[in-house]
């Protein structure tokens, strides 16, 4: 009797384990296929960046070619009007770094102001900030450009950098972070010790908010670095000395007279390699940050 039960039970258990294992294996293979789909375009890009145009016409290849430096040389001469990586890196870095700094610093300041102090307009101002979060950039673009043309600020970096001060989504995130991990007693203690209000913010609040600042800085940086819409809208005359990297790529794309695919791939590769390296180094924080963004709502 008991032997019989054991046999039945054991069989059921084996069956169950087998099912789970089979399902896991199938899903693992499916994930591998998705991984290949995710990586294949980038892999082809990197491989083709090192090949000659005539070589690319011959079909796909698994191994990289040896033509990368020739491609770079061709890029320097023939794509001079479209793509200059050093200028692009410089311009993108200037805009991105200053805008990220402003976003993060002033968002922390605003969140701190709303969290720590009691004032009449506190709740109203926070509600306004939340409402602003919903307005997409495309909606204000026509009025924005019209206004900038009137002020004579087109072809200048000011409209690309200064608006970063007002970043409602970052303020929202920082306020939630402060609510959970910034006790007001610390501010009180600092006051008793004679610390000024602004100094309290700089020397106590900012170090305590480091994790939130780091996550938001990464996302602000990526968003600014990838931004094509605003720069191409504001930099009307599209001068080489002012173009950002995405704008240069757009220019490579719209040249129709001469197209050497090896060099085009090289340009694209040069434009995305920094962000891929940064991603590989910071992927852990980025994934955690995306997950946090999902929870907050």
């Amino acid at each position: 009797m008991s032997d019989n039960m054991k046999a039945v039970y054991g069989q059921a258990k084996d069956n169950y384990m087998f099912k789970i294992r089979l399902k896991s294996t199938i899903l693992f293979i499916w994930c591998l296929i998705l991984t290949v789909i995710c990586l294949l375009p980038i892999y082809i890009l990197l491989i083709n960046a090192t090949r000659e145009a005539s070589d690319i016409a011959g079909g796909l290849s698994v191994l990289p070619g040896t033509h990368f430096f020739e491609n770079v040389k061709t890029m320097k001469t023939d794509f001079k009007q479209q793509f200059r990586p050093l200028i692009g890196y410089r311009n993108s870095a200037v805009i991105t770094i200053s805008a990220t700094f402003l976003s993060v610093f002033f968002s922390a300041l605003t969140a701190y102001g709303i969290h720590v102090y009691d004032f009449k307009l506190k709740e109203i101002s926070y509600t306004v900030i939340l409402l602003v979060m919903m307005v997409p950039a495309q909606v204000t673009a026509a009025g924005f450009l019209n206004f900038m043309v009137k002020l004579g600020l087109t072809d200048s970096y000011i409209p690309l950098i200064i608006p970063a001060v007002a970043a409602p989504a970052i303020i929202f995130f920082m306020r939630s972070y402060m609510k959970s991990s910034f006790p007001l007693d610390i501010v009180e203690a600092a006051r008793i010790d004679g610390c000024g209000e602004f100094r309290t913010f700089l020397t106590i609040a900012i170090p305590m908010m480091k994790p939130a600042i780091a996550v938001q800085a990464i996302f602000a940086f990526v968003a600014q670095w990838n931004n094509f819409y605003t720069p191409s809208m504001i930099l009307l005359s599209n001068k080489m000395s002012q173009r950002t990297l995405p704008m240069m790529i757009a220019n490579v794309q719209s040249m129709d007279t001469y197209k050497d695919y090896g060099v085009v791939y090289t340009c694209i590769a040069i434009s995305i390699i920094p962000i891929i390296i940064a991603y590989i180094l910071l992927s852990r924080f980025i994934i955690a940050g995306v997950a946090l963004g999902g929870v907050k709502e």
Partner: peptide, 16 residues
């Protein structure tokens, strides 16, 4: 790996 395409510049992705 699956999040990676999201971080690449959209302009570059289009041209790629």
């Amino acid at each position: 790996v699956m999040y990676m395409p999201n971080i690449i510049t959209a302009a570059s992705v289009a041209v790629l």
